[in-house]
Design a protein around this nucleic acid. Structure first.
Lengths: 146, 146
DNA sequence: ATAAATTAAGATAAAAAAGTCTTTTATTGT
DNA sequence: ACAATAAAAGACTTTTTTATCTTAATTTAT
């Protein structure tokens, strides 16, 4: 089990890929995205429909249609995608699954786990959806098993 | 979705509870553990059977039987429990689910996610199974919604 | 030895997550 | 207007995770 659900992993990879295509001036279809990020096509379609409904990505139907990301949405933190897909448990949940764990009623892992959560939050906050396009373009960073 | 599976959360809570009882000189039965850590009894039974088979905890059947933890097992890192239940993906998996993500073929999150993983590993390595007994005993730390 | 207590094991069941297929709706180019 | 294209929506299936119940095997105390 990873830190994020599979759905969320696919979503993050797809969004980076779409962002990269958008910067290059192209809309991109579900088939291409799925194949480029190694995800099941129909399943990814559902995920992107959801992100589209929530306004995190955009799409147009028909010939030359496909997915893209609005200019300002490119500056959103990746955290927005994670929250949309997995909810916010990862940002403030207890490591041991206790509903009432808190500073005043801490679980055994509380203080150390807080650092983990903070690091995750930091990672997802400083990372924006559109920020890797250069590296993706020149192959310095990968979305796929190469 | 949390960082650990529900199974793993129950396992960690149960192990801390058993350790605490062991230090107090008692074996503890499945009913008591389940009720004290807020977990489904039969499900927890399966989990503890598994941990017992793997030698991480011990048990005896019959009257006055129950679960306990051998002296030296109390010094094991919590990481051993997590590995037994959830495997080692949490310690070295890619944040975006890419099988071939690595230093030389990094995903967009690689460098930041490495810090997350390291923090998790650190937390689970420095934390030993038996180390919270004092705090648990005096109520400074909790395994249950109180 | 026997009865009671307690974990182990096996068999299901229910719920959630992941994955697939089909039909509908919207858009574009001709 | 029409045909082709591509996403949206809906229905369904499969797999995995979580949860429950029943029976068997041990152990202890009497």
């Amino acid at each position: 089990m990873g830190v994020f659900s599979k759905t969320c992993e696919y979503a993050m990879r797809a969004v980076f890929y779409i962002a990269s295509s958008t910067i290059s001036g192209n809309r991109v279809g579900i088939k291409e995205i799925a194949s480029k990020i190694d995800s099941p096509e129909y399943f990814l379609a559902k995920i992107l429909q959801d992100l589209s409904r929530k306004g995190l990505i955009s799409s147009v139907k028909g010939p030359n249609g496909g997915f893209y990301i609005e200019g300002e949405a490119l500056n959103r933190p990746l955290a927005d995608i994670v929250t949309a897909v997995d909810g916010d448990e990862i940002f403030n949940g207890c490591g041991m699954g206790l509903a009432h764990c808190s500073e005043t009623n801490p679980c055994p892992l509380h203080h150390e786990f807080k650092k983990v959560r903070n690091q995750i939050t930091h990672m997802l906050t400083i990372t924006t959806i559109g920020q890797f396009n250069k590296e993706l373009g020149n192959g310095l960073i990968s979305l796929k098993k190469s």
